[in-house]
Computed example of a mutant assay.
Amino acid sequence: MTVTSGPAALLAADRLRRLLRQQANSVAVITTAGEDRPVGITATSFTSVSLRPPLVSFCVDRGSSSFPVFDAAAHVAVHLLGADQEDVARTFATSGIDRFAETAWRPGPHGVPLLDRALAWLVCRVATRVVAGDHVIVLAAPETAGHTEGRPLVYHNGQYVVLP
């Protein structure tokens, strides 16, 4: 085992990526309404931040083609995917395609797209954005939500997995 420490010792990006693949994460699709079309991304960075006031967060890559729309969005929808939605996760993780063409959705509050069959969803007002390296951390305040019962889709070690 190699140990790296000290203030000047920063992990290389590829090493950090390999290390963080050991963390299991829920799979979320974040959507918003663009000027001419809906926009969405798959994110494994979604997390609860605070209950008082209610806040959640997710990260958006500043280099992604969707970033300008998310950077200007006042509202977003967060969808926690169920065990049977790996295809949706892969679709929203693929660049250069119309992610909504083969995905069932409907317009929600503030015009944000709501994906059908999500295990849970939240419509949120963007509270603030924090630049953090090559990403932006979006802090958002949930305004409305819904959920169904089921097993979540999880991302671990570069693969989508389902809990038993």
Rank of each mutant, 00 (worst) to 15 (best):
V123P: 02
V60M: 08
A74I: 04
W121D: 02
Y155H: 15
L139K: 11
S45W: 03
S66K: 04
P38H: 08
S95L: 00
V112L: 04
V138K: 09
P53R: 08
G158F: 01
L119I: 05
Q85I: 06
S50P: 08
T103V: 15
V126Q: 07
V60E: 04
R62Q: 13
I97L: 05
R125L: 05
V112T: 15
T47S: 15
S48R: 02
S48K: 04
G63A: 15
R151F: 02
T44M: 01
A83Y: 02
P152R: 14
A33V: 00
Q85K: 03
D98Y: 09
A77W: 06
C59P: 03
T103Y: 07
L115K: 05
V78K: 00
L81A: 03
A83P: 09
L81P: 03
T31R: 08
T148F: 05
L153H: 01
I137V: 15
S48V: 08
T103R: 10
H79T: 09
V136M: 07
A127Q: 15
P113S: 02
A83R: 14
G96R: 06
D36L: 13
A118T: 06
H156S: 14
P142L: 10
R62W: 01
H75D: 11
G150E: 07
L119T: 03
R106G: 05
A93D: 08
S45R: 09
L80Q: 01
V78T: 13
L139G: 12
R62N: 12
S50V: 01
V49L: 14
R62M: 05
A141Y: 10
T44K: 01
L139H: 13
V69W: 08
E86I: 02
T44Y: 08
R117C: 11
F67H: 15
P109I: 04
F46E: 08
P53V: 06
V154H: 13
G150K: 13
A43K: 09
A132Q: 06
Y155N: 07
D61W: 05
V49K: 01
R37K: 14
T91G: 04
A104Y: 11
G34K: 12
V136S: 14
L139Q: 12
S50D: 02
V27P: 06
A120T: 10
L114D: 11
R125P: 05
C124P: 04
D116I: 00
E102K: 10
A104V: 10
I30T: 13
E86T: 04
S48C: 05
L153D: 03
P38R: 07
G63Y: 03
H156E: 12
D61H: 09
F58R: 06
